[in-house]
Design a protein around this nucleic acid. Structure first.
Lengths: 191, 191
DNA sequence: GTTTACTCAGGACAAATGTCCTTTACTAAT
DNA sequence: ATTAGTAAAGGACATTTGTCCTGAGTAAAC
């Protein structure tokens, strides 16, 4: 739901500091609302979030959004597209101000081929993503909206994150109208 | 939807042949209906499908099934659980007679640590899985059942696979009753 | 041939979700 | 203060999906 990865962050911090000319990995900032990646476009950098919160989402038919995940510190983005040699699968947008390590593609490709440490870190990230995505696909099909909604509210509370109603609906794959109904039901059953 | 991986298959074939005592990788067979993995149980082998077709699915509340994917030749199973150090995430059941390469865990762990070729192959598999799973989660939320159903029927036709109605419903995350309605609608709109 | 048992499709109705539109409330301009 | 504009909430109704159950069709048992 909200993914972070401290070990990947410190791994990259080391690489960043170890650079002689600071040209393969550079720091970049994005303001709230800016897009780090745009669906269907190609990218020239791989990024790893140093601070801040982003959402990763599909847009279908130009208005319908579907949020895949919220990504926080230490999450890497853009490398799947590199590995698969495809344009950006989805949009990544800053929900707060965000700083990232932006990694040059030739440098990253080289790491992929030669650094088993990076490979192991990536495999670990991917394994976790697959577990999460699969479990979520399953329970969004098998359980009620209210269950997923409750989890989302928990997340918001726990991390002090601001998630708009639009974003909640987009994460749950329902309309705002339905979200309002679900929220109403939830309140009436809780109080 | 149906995943296969020829390059991984030939990679493992080579490893299999290269073994001096044939003890780290052994061939195993499963009859139609047998389970290669059982959800929540731990496993002592990683497997790679040499021939046949399997389904990978969650069971919730002991009766409700949700099929994640159909896995064919060259697909590896059980390694995510090893990497994440968790019990089996889901069940894997033979839909036809199946043969697999069964790989000893210490041997596989060693490969993970030292063989960059395996790491690269796995990363490629994972990247594809994440792309597929994400896209699917998205379109199952945003599109109609009929759309997904049409894709499933295509798959069945294209590969000459037998998918029961129960399995279709489990893949689509709907009940058989709803599947019947969807099938009826589909026929009336097609003919 | 009749009966029993089992499977499967679909009818009847309930619950959930979506579409469309009205109401409400708040803000800004005059 | 009045009006107009805008955004959010929810009412009314349609569609989709689910639960429960009936009835048709088939196969096995007697």
């Amino acid at each position: 739901m909200l993914r972070t990865n401290q070990s990947f962050l410190s791994y990259l911090e080391q690489l960043y500091k170890a650079q002689p000319h600071k040209e393969d990995i550079v720091l970049k900032s994005f303001s709230k609302g800016e897009r780090l990646f745009v669906q269907h476009e190609t990218t020239s950098k791989i990024m790893l979030i140093k601070s801040g919160l982003t959402k990763c989402f599909f847009t279908e038919d130009d208005d319908n959004e579907y949020i895949l995940e919220f990504l926080g510190e230490g999450e890497i983005i853009g490398e799947i597209e590199l590995i698969r040699k495809i344009p950006c699968l989805c949009n990544v947008e800053a929900m707060t101000n965000v700083t990232v390590y932006a990694i040059a593609i030739p440098y990253f490709t080289d790491l992929l081929k030669n650094d088993i440490g990076l490979n192991n870190l990536l495999l670990d990230v991917y394994a976790e993503r697959i577990v999460n995505t699969s479990s979520r696909a399953s329970y969004q099909q098998l359980y009620t909206t209210e269950y997923s909604l409750a989890k989302l509210m928990e997340l918001q509370k726990k991390h002090g994150i601001e998630i708009s109603k639009e974003e909640m609906a987009a994460y749950l794959g329902i309309t705002i109208r339905s979200l309002n109904s679900a929220l109403k039901n939830q309140n009436s059953s809780t109080s």
